[in-house]
Amino acid sequence: MLSVLLLFSLARASAESGESGSLLSPNPGLIFWTVITFAILLIILKKFAWKPILEALDKREAAIKESMEKAEKAKEDAQKILEENKLSNKKYIEEAQKMLAESRADAEKVKEQIINQSKAEADKLKADAFAEISRKKDEAFDELKLQIADIAISAAEKIINENLNKDVQSKIINKFIEELPKN
């Protein structure tokens, strides 16, 4: 309140000193114009500037909020889907592993079967081959025996033809044949 008194005295002092317009003396004309200017400014700005601007700001804030909420929701959804995917992936992997193990076991079985089969076949082949070989050997041996006999006969014939007659020869030969082992 002291300041009010001081300012009034100040205003009076400067008015007394003869200045037409002092620093602190209010000017009614200026007050009048200020009131009019400020009122018009307030009305015009309120209608044409502040209202649309503030509305736009509110709208934008709402839009931002909405889009942020949407983004948040989308993120949550994505998280959920990801989790689901992870879960199903795990299931698929397990299934695949199971299948793999099964097929591996199957393959092992088939392998063993094949090996056994081929071993049996090989054994059979071997046995057949041995049989064939011994048969052929016997055959060859028999043939050889006949051939040896023939050769011996012809050789003997040649010798005897040169030294003995036919009778002596037959005798000798028969004796020889009789002496041959009977197999």
Binding site: L23, L24, P26, N27, P28, L30, I31, T34
Partner: peptide, 9 residues
């Protein structure tokens, strides 16, 4: 900087 203006405000 005029007291009339600031007073009105």
């Amino acid at each position: 900087s005029n007291i009339s203006v600031t007073a009105t405000l």
